[in-house]
Design a binder for these strands. Sequence first.
DNA 1: CCTAAGTAAGTGAGTGCTTACTATACTCCG
DNA 2: CGGAGTATAGTAAGCACTCACTTACTTAGG
Lengths: 216, 216
Amino acid sequence: MKRLSGRPAKQPTVPRRKRMSGEERKAQIVRVATDLFAREGFKGATTREIAGKAGISEAVIYKHFSRKEDLYKAIIDSRCSNPGGEPRLLSMLKGKEGREVFVIIASFLLEEHRRDSSFLRLLMYSALERQSLSELFINTRGLEFLGFLESHIQSLIKTGEMRKVDPGLAARAFIGMVEHYSIAQELYGAKRFFSRPERKVVEAFVDIFLNGMRRR
Amino acid sequence: MKRLSGRPAKQPTVPRRKRMSGEERKAQIVRVATDLFAREGFKGATTREIAGKAGISEAVIYKHFSRKEDLYKAIIDSRCSNPGGEPRLLSMLKGKEGREVFVIIASFLLEEHRRDSSFLRLLMYSALERQSLSELFINTRGLEFLGFLESHIQSLIKTGEMRKVDPGLAARAFIGMVEHYSIAQELYGAKRFFSRPERKVVEAFVDIFLNGMRRR
DNA sequence: CCTAAGTAAGTGAGTGCTTACTATACTCCG
DNA sequence: CGGAGTATAGTAAGCACTCACTTACTTAGG
């Protein structure tokens, strides 16, 4: 016989779980979900799996986020205003000049992506599945950083250390070499067929770029 | 009253559709599905949607492909042994030398991806969702082409027209600039914030690269 | 040339399972 | 007590995939 709705009286014999404050729980859900969305994409990651990994029931997720989409947005937001990202790089660059600036940038990007590819995966998934959200990424993490590099190059052109090249394109050329290599190695699995020590890669790319930008 | 199974007698009043031979139909399914898988990914594209766009019932798909996965593999295969891809580029390069080789390669890639981003999307989706399949892409389309460029650069180094740089890294640097720019513009939506005429982009990238590889 | 048997192509209505999301009741703690 | 937090047990819709059956086309025999 079926109940119309509601619950039958239940016996609370199951071992009870730890309670958490709302914000703790929310942060934990975001953490777990970030990992899953990065691995499986928005459509591939299920609320059930997220709840399972967090050790709670699906209903708890919906106490904190009214729709799956909202949880996804929260993740993108948290990744955009992240402590671990570009700010750290920019501080590493303080006081550095010449060739070293480019070496630091290239090493940073290669290392960061090798260490944790989830940011890269989230970015790519959001570009493919949810184009509008990927623009958030672009705006907050991409453009700020590209803008820095662009104006750095611009000033090197002004002092005559580099020849006159559209600084926007030059910056994109440099980032492109590094990022594309990183993506190919980590995500496309290209490292199965081609591999060089990270130091050599950085040296080669920085060489080609700086030499390419030198006045003749 | 319900039948135990089987169909109720049906009246064939609906306008009948064209019949197709098996191979025609199979090719059509692959064509329609390519488009959908490229837009939505493996998980995002549904068999129902594919059938709908092809104007057939889902069951027909399963006459030709025993699982959805098989259809996906067929698409990857067909895209790998494609007439429209690298062979065309390689023939365009016949007899060309010097700077022009690099201009042609860069223009080709930028134009190809702008015209039809579905190959790029399939590649990226397969890297994220189905890593093993993306290696098929890499092997057939990527490595062959990279290998060509690599050995071209190698020979330029031998004749002394370029300085000594790991040719594998040099080739990846050049392709990286171009591909990453293309991906950023077309897939990340970066063209909303930054745009240059294609000719200028090609010129700048080729300049930086060739100048960067010149003997000092 | 006509017709009927044989078969490839196609269909509509499922199956069983999974999904995002919800309604309701219980419990712990301030 | 009251409300935040959690659990149980849903629901309706959507998914890949199947089945029993029909229809269109081909072809062999008179």
